[in-house]
Design a protein around this nucleic acid. Sequence first.
DNA 1: TTGTAGGCGTTATCAA
DNA 2: TTGATAACGCCTACAA
Lengths: 355, 355
Amino acid sequence: MPVTIRDVARKLKLSITTVSRALDGYSDVAASTRERVVLAARTMGYEPSRAARQLRRRRTDIIGTVLPTDEGHFADAYFSSFLAGLGDGATSLGFDLLVSTARPDSEAERQLYARWAHGRIVDGIVLNRMRLRDRRVQFLAREGIPFVAHGRTRLDIDFPYVDMDSRAAFCRLVIHLTERGHRRIGYIGAPMGTTLQADRQAGCRDGLRAAGLASDDLLVVRGDLTRQGGYLGAKRLLTLKKPPTAIIGANDLTAIGAMRAVHEAGLEVGRDVAVAGYDGTEDAAHAQPPLTTLTQPIYEIAHQLAEMLIGRIAGTETGIRHVILKPELVVRGSTQYERRRPRGKEVRTGRRLFP
Amino acid sequence: MPVTIRDVARKLKLSITTVSRALDGYSDVAASTRERVVLAARTMGYEPSRAARQLRRRRTDIIGTVLPTDEGHFADAYFSSFLAGLGDGATSLGFDLLVSTARPDSEAERQLYARWAHGRIVDGIVLNRMRLRDRRVQFLAREGIPFVAHGRTRLDIDFPYVDMDSRAAFCRLVIHLTERGHRRIGYIGAPMGTTLQADRQAGCRDGLRAAGLASDDLLVVRGDLTRQGGYLGAKRLLTLKKPPTAIIGANDLTAIGAMRAVHEAGLEVGRDVAVAGYDGTEDAAHAQPPLTTLTQPIYEIAHQLAEMLIGRIAGTETGIRHVILKPELVVRGSTQYERRRPRGKEVRTGRRLFP
DNA sequence: TTGTAGGCGTTATCAA
DNA sequence: TTGATAACGCCTACAA
């Protein structure tokens, strides 16, 4: 039913070849012919069949990305920005964006990637939330499917990425907290096996060391990058015999959940317990009190990833393969107060900063 | 380079027909043959070419949705849930989800829909954030492209949808506030022309009337469904000569922005000024104080929309075309206090509820 | 139960 | 500068 290139050719009494070439901007068609063709195509509402074009050119002009859903539901502003950046980046280069969801490291995830790759459903894939030994990377590299990633792995496979130096950033954040007088610092982590968890926790320990404290003193509980996980994690931290005076979340959502737990414990965030996160989402800016965080320009990162990926696909690579950005520390109310001097009976661990 | 049905056939010394039929589960292939084929296909990593299949079957097995981006960036948990529901719903029925972004009612948006429709890039489209006179609906209906929507229009065009009775819900919410003693109620709206704005504002007025107040007394300012819009809107409301004692946001993000403005004005949310929103996002539950809101099960709605749309495409419609759900009022700290009796000199507007 | 052949709508090659 | 023709990989009458 839709109008095909044949219809246009017939109407103009031209061959489909000429119509095709006129529309694709080849130089060997008469200017007058081109005009006629373009006009007719527009008035007839002709749009080339994507399927036919794909089949012939062996290209889909589609890039894909898979969102990690741990239990079907998820609502994360981080991924909204990520998708917006990817979508806009793709659109600006004539590509579309295919999105799916899968539980990390599940059989369903494996099948999804296999289907997308072998079925030639996408020309390339953008990975996120990287794992230390990422099977997706191994698979895509083996199959020769173009891909780029937000983040790195510990595998010995080279691929283009944009990553944040989050280890250094968490180090910086911990130093900020120690400068405020905090000595007992809690960290609510991310799922095991993710690169971001390894980096961020290591960064926290770096920070303690840099401040002259023992890196083993970091109070670590597990989280899952959600508000709920942060809430539960903070509750556990706050019921320790010696609870931390500052809590760092692996991301903003975790920190926001932690703030709630602090509040429910009858403590005031910022005054009694400092809280900080990572991502720089709007959630953080509008939290109560506003949340200290490390920002990453996620929309721009995703936009650039789309461009890098499409560059690889189209063979117009710019040569930029590895980008590492520095998160910016944004100090807000949630960590603004100087830590009150500990009371006499409180036991101090570690050495003093600036003795 | 990827393995095709030919490769499988050649290896098995069968015709491609037989391979095709075996894989598609036709009954007229010998069980033993089928086993051989399925095994070979799996070990060879065969996956049918999506393009070829699309061309032949005149179906893409892809549904699409376009996110409204007013200025490129957007970070909205609402849409994360929406996409997750759509993605999971599509996946469960063997479809993929194509996502793009466009500014509402822009030329780019028009072109995008035209390209998706005429290029047969998607089999159907899921619409959201409906407009009163929605050009997307007019276009898709005219072109005969299957579509479903979250929400309705004021056009005289019938289509399948899932919608919330948000008018009744906002009415209910206003009554809740008047029961708490509030008489001056502010409303921070959504962009003009959207159905949700019309419905929600009308609901507020209904509520005032039902409480025996003048519906004209609703203090309305414009918002844009973001935290920032809510923040600015609330600032304007709070600087009125007679500021409201309760503020309703058109959605949760708006309400969260409003909470921040209340806070900055040195007032306490819940005690001095009540605030309420709509959507039931996790943002609301973890706000400080927790935000009273009207919940809609957005993940499930999106999931059902995907199913409805795919049902239409595949011709397996269930007959369910119009679903209207009732949002649930979840009362939390942000509206928990009884309004203090007005001081003597304060002028009362409207009649008392329960005189 | 299996195989042959035609065509889905393009683009690319080659000839006119 | 234009046109005829052959794929691209798959599905499906129809024939064997």
